[in-house]
């Protein structure tokens, strides 16, 4: 199976902070890779590099055959169309309906600006409704997005990303605001879709147990460095928890 995401010695600097420190990582097609790490360890930053929302200070990032150091304009947009992103804070437009929020996922394939549900083609609306149904929110389709609970908004964000029919899905703590049961449901959903469509998933989590039960692979970050990179199967809970300890006890992954 070929790699769809390749990081080669990628570093990212924000002033004095080194958010990513020589990260090298390859993710093969269809894999569910889970990122673990303390707050501020660089998980969000890593995900943002995959979608070209941030650019590496050093090293190279290649996604679906596109070199992100040089991609810009139409080429970057074409890549982003193939990569879905579910953000930590959902990032929905509160004043718009739930369905219209999902429809914005199709903007990359449409021409020109859109505002108002009726400006989206019927097939887009139908497909969007299908995804909403899949995440269990078809009934809320015409409510304003800001009237939903955090967990519901998270699922809308997932539906929006799915409407892109992405080849890679980036999910930044997609279950952070959910109760344990809904968290399990959402992770199950991601797994199901990944299996159906051979979708590659990069997902950051704070729950070691979820990572071990739903991920194919676990990548641990500490202060921007990869300190653990193993298949989930056979990885012990304590070994994974060590990512969170203050001093590095786990030897850096090969």
């Amino acid at each position: 199976m070929h790699d769809v995401v390749t990081f080669q010695r990628v570093s990212k600097r924000f002033g004095a902070t080194l958010a990513l420190d020589e990260v090298s990582l390859s993710v093969p097609e269809g894999q569910i890779a889970v990122l673990l790490g303390l707050s501020g360890s660089g998980k969000s930053t890593l995900l943002r590099h995959v979608d070209g929302l941030q650019r590496a200070s050093a090293g190279s990032v290649s996604v679906l055959g596109t070199d992100l150091a040089t991609a810009s304009g139409a080429r970057l947009r074409a890549l982003r169309r193939r990569v879905g992103f579910v953000f930590q804070q959902f990032h929905l437009v509160g004043a718009l309906t739930v369905l219209e929020n999902v429809c914005t996922g199709a903007l990359g394939t449409l021409r020109g600006p859109r505002l108002g549900l009726f400006t989206y083609p019927k097939r887009v609306r139908q497909e969007a409704l299908g995804h909403l149904d899949r995440v269990g929110l078809a009934e809320q389709a015409f409510q304003r997005a800001d009237t939903l609970s955090g967990g519901q908004q998270q699922r809308v964000a997932i539906a929006r990303a799915l409407l892109q029919r992405p080849e890679i899905l980036l999910a930044d703590e997609p279950v952070a605001s959910l109760d344990p049961e809904s968290a399990g449901q959402v992770m199950g959903l991601l797994r199901e879709i990944s299996a159906e469509q051979n979708l590659t998933v990069l997902c950051s989590l704070h729950q070691v147990d979820l990572a071990l039960s739903w991920g194919d692979r676990v990548v641990g970050l500490r202060s921007g460095r990869v300190v653990l990179d193993r298949q989930a199967a056979g990885l012990g809970r304590d070994e994974a928890m060590a990512v969170y300890s203050a001093v590095a006890r786990v030897p850096a992954a090969a």
Binding site: D51, L53, R77, A78, L79, R80, R81, R82, V83, G84, F85, F87, H91, L92, V93, T104, G105, A106, L107, G108, T109, L110, G112, P113, R114, L115, A157, R160, A161, Q164
Partner: peptide
């Protein structure tokens, strides 16, 4: 940012 992450262009980003 979310709209941009979906591959939207500049005018789409402003409108949505």
């Amino acid at each position: 940012t979310a709209v941009r992450a979906g591959g939207a262009g500049r005018s789409q980003e402003l409108a949505s």
